[in-house]
Design a protein around this nucleic acid. Structure first.
Lengths: 258, 258
DNA sequence: CCAAAAGTGTTTCTAATACACCCATGT
DNA sequence: ACATGGGTGTATTAGAAACACTTTTGG
């Protein structure tokens, strides 16, 4: 074992060391979580945004977010892990189904990204099927599903976070079965194609898409059921599928091609 | 503008709000950066590890890391952004060339991942060409390039971080020009294939790999130079290439196939 | 000359694409 | 009947893989 960089502790045992620790000395930055919750409404991707109810940047649209509860406090019990914190701050804006796809996007910590102090923000993404509009009750600040192409001003660096999320979503559709996270438990191939078309922003060849999905092992599983209606203006009733076991797609569905 | 959730601030202007802020109230977690620096030595991937010089877990291998400097202090000036902090803690272990590929891996914040206190760790990845062994001078704790398959015990949750880094590296070779980051400024196609073989852990077809690389626009650029020697036991001298402009590969080099 | 590594030619096979066409359902 | 959307058949084409072969170098 090597000599310590800092001589102060090298003669103590670990127990003694731990009991002498003052977290505040090493805790000069605040940690928040921000959530980019995405869904598809009427063929267009939407993101859940909330009006900031407090300073700074009060009144601007912002991603649902909040401070990580590092330990038990009067605000509530500690968040066991960062995903728990993300789900907690999201639930403060709108109710979410139990089974929800959550993944980390990245962490943003530039010195000047928050005017109050040094804030390190861990951003998460949520992919959800179409959900009701958030309530606007007394303990709920105004929140809404907003098209992700919105030109309205957003707080802090949330525009950049949203851009990163969009690119991540577009890319993950190619290589993973993520698209099913935007759909209800059973869905048609056409609905799945609608997810791709909404996120990638371009039309896909229906017939070839259909075959490609069925040729990708584990992407979807056949429920021998049919959808209720064959379309608004008539049409054959589509077969219903559910999400398969595969998380990664082999082969991938590349967006470079048609 | 909506009414604030917390009524305390809704009558103050933003300037007055900011001046009343006490960061310590909202700063109950420490933030660190940890760096997974990868290189390839003799055909095998290696990671830079350092023996922990201080408690806790003194003496165990750990990723290079340290606390983010959230503001100016006696330790030094504030880190302007998280990548600056990552490069700083890496440079404390071994010198690095100026041009180095750095990217964020993810953030780890489970309640019990550090016995001292709540520590949120932002992990970064560095991809480097083969570098000299780290010095072991008086201000430098013992550090070394260790094969990434090491069975030695590592501190905290660093084994999981390393696993995530390995999977990220394997995956990014498929879709990006990342492999060139492991090589010196000019290199042969065979050396590039060596990177893929080392990271993916399997042999690739030399002739087809060669053509596939040259058929991928922007991956490599021809320098009309030849490598010095054609191999240890004789052999034709290989053409030298440098990294091209493309960051994403179209088409990708999938590892599913041969 | 022989071995070793770089690089090219060519055949074979698989998969993506385009487009024609049939099926099932609502109006 | 006809429009609409679901789904299949099939010819063409592009790309991946396998393997034979040539080129260039060191011993």
């Amino acid at each position: 074992m090597s000599e310590g960089i800092d001589g102060r502790y090298h003669d103590e045992d670990e127990r003694g060391f731990l009991s002498s620790y003052d977290p505040h000395v090493f805790a000069p930055a605040a940690v928040t979580v921000d959530v980019v919750a995405l869904t598809i409404r009427e063929g267009l991707p939407h993101v859940l945004l909330a009006r900031r109810a407090a300073h700074p940047q009060r009144g601007l649209w912002a991603l649902p977010g909040g401070f990580v509860r590092a330990q038990d406090s009067e605000a509530g019990p500690a968040d066991p892990d960062l995903p728990d914190a993300a789900l907690r701050v999201l639930a403060e804006k709108t109710p979410m189904p139990a089974e929800i796809h959550l993944e980390q996007l990245g962490t943003y910590g530039a010195l000047d990204r928050d005017p109050r102090m040094r804030v390190i923000s861990v951003a998460y993404m949520v992919f959800a099927p179409d959900l009701p509009d958030p309530g606007t009750g007394r303990d709920i600040s105004e929140a809404a599903w907003v098209p992700w192409t919105t030109k309205e001003e957003t707080a802090f660096d949330h525009a950049r976070v949203l851009d990163d999320a969009v690119e991540r979503a577009r890319s993950k559709l190619e290589y993973t079965s993520l698209a099913t996270a935007f759909l209800p438990p059973t869905f048609t191939i056409t609905a799945l194609r609608g997810v791709y078309e909404a996120i990638w922003g371009r039309a896909l060849h229906a017939a070839n898409f259909h075959r490609k999905i069925l040729a990708t092992p584990g992407f979807v599983e056949d429920t021998s059921e049919l959808a209720d209606r064959g379309g608004s203006g008539g049409g054959r009733r589509a077969r219903l599928y559910r999400a398969g076991e595969a998380a990664l797609l082999h082969p991938p569905l590349l967006r470079g091609a048609q």
